[in-house]
């Protein structure tokens, strides 16, 4: 069955690039342009995995992660962000992020990360 990936990123530029990379890998893609919409998609559409940006207006990525955990969803999250500080990475890993990837997105790095994370989930 086709795996469903939710992309939460305020940048349409990034959503388009990430979507095209993952769609080519055969994943079903859902997009949300902010945290609130992302959380709604999590509840309604039950994605297998989330690719999450951190720097977003309104609800930022870490707040989205908190909400997802608080609501009891066990969905692996790949953080894909321009904020590449080691301290940010540490915070995200502590919050349960499965991977932390730097922007600009590199096709191979993202493809591998998504594949590995989904394999672990299915194992």
């Amino acid at each position: 069955m086709m795996k469903r990936v939710l992309i939460i990123d305020d940048s349409s530029f990034q959503r388009k690039i990430i979507s095209s990379i993952l769609a080519a890998e055969g994943y079903e893609i859902i997009c949300a342009e902010n945290g609130v919409e992302g959380l709604k998609n999590v509840a309604d559409l039950h994605p297998d995995m989330i690719v999450l940006d951190l720097l977003m207006p309104g609800m930022n990525g870490t707040e989205v992660m908190e909400q997802i955990h608080r609501q009891g969803f066990q969905i692996p999250i790949i953080v894909l962000t321009a904020d590449i500080q080691e301290s940010t990475k540490q915070r995200c890993i502590e919050m349960g992020a499965a991977r932390f990837i730097n922007k600009p997105v590199k096709k191979d790095e993202l493809r591998t990360a998504v594949r590995e994370v989904l394999e672990v989930k299915c194992a």
Partner: peptide, 13 residues
């Protein structure tokens, strides 16, 4: 939006 993202990436680095 695209330029904003480029600025974001540069500032993040």
């Amino acid at each position: 939006d695209a330029i904003k993202e480029l600025v974001n990436i540069g500032v993040g680095r």
